[in-house]
């Protein structure tokens, strides 16, 4: 194993922590790549990354259910609170309160139904999901329903892909074994991506009619 990493582990830092940290460059690169080359936008790097880490603690199925439930309650309460005509932050605070109450309610429901996930889930995963509601609601206000749905589902897709990558045990070993290569690879990829001026994959589809109509200059 790479010596500096071994040193950290010998001094009591869990290997899991280190492998999660070293996953961040990979996830960030994947997210940058999906935006620049494929055209999946999502909410920047932070949101999909943090959701995928939350999924790690909750498990994908339960995590997704929790996320969608929070999103649904958040959106519904926004529509109700909208009528009160309040200033932005107090309005958002009320939405967060309603969502929090819902999560607490869900805990009772979980205990009643004897679902163990509810009891074992780390508080950080739940906190992340609740606080992210602000971002999703803000998107609804700024982009309208359609834009918000697209952005949210793109973010969710990215989160699920990131979750699979982070959860991949082979890769977890590789990042600890060859951390230097992972960093160099991520940096180089991003340097290239940052200068990439080609069409994004979705743009080939979006502009297909225009492309078909292009008249290539005749060879002389």
């Amino acid at each position: 194993m790479f010596f500096p990493i071994q040193y950290l582990i010998n001094h009591g830092i869990p290997q899991e922590t280190i492998s999660l940290l070293l996953m961040i460059p990979i996830i960030a690169t994947i997210i940058a790549l999906s935006r620049q080359v494929i055209g999946i936008k999502g909410f920047g790097i932070y949101t999909p990354l943090i959701i995928s880490f939350a999924f790690l603690s909750t498990g994908l199925k339960f995590g997704l259910m929790l996320f969608l439930a929070i999103l649904l309650v958040g959106t519904l309460s926004r529509l109700v609170v909208k009528k009160l005509r309040l200033l932005y932050l107090p309005r958002m605070a009320i939405i967060v309160i309603i969502v929090t109450l819902t999560v607490i309610g869900a805990m009772y429901l979980g205990i009643y139904a004897n679902r163990t996930e509810v009891i074992t889930t780390s508080i950080f995963a739940i906190l992340i999901m609740i606080t992210l509601i602000e971002k999703f609601i803000a998107a609804q206000i700024e982009q309208g329903a359609r834009g918000a749905i697209i952005l949210t589902s793109e973010t969710l897709i990215l989160s699920i892909i990131s979750f699979w990558v982070v959860n991949w045990s082979w890769l977890q070993d590789v990042v600890v074994q060859y951390p230097v290569w992972i960093i160099i690879f991520s940096l180089l990829t991003n340097l290239l991506l940052g200068r990439w001026t080609g069409l994004r994959l979705f743009e080939y589809y979006r502009f297909r009619e225009v492309i078909k109509n292009v008249e290539l200059p005749k060879k002389k």
Partner: peptide, 20 residues
């Protein structure tokens, strides 16, 4: 191949942001 060649005439978001 023609499609790819023709697509070089179209301006995408990447090129708009970086080149213009």
């Amino acid at each position: 191949l023609n499609f790819l060649k023709k697509s070089e005439y179209v301006l995408g978001l990447n090129a708009r942001n970086l080149s213009y």
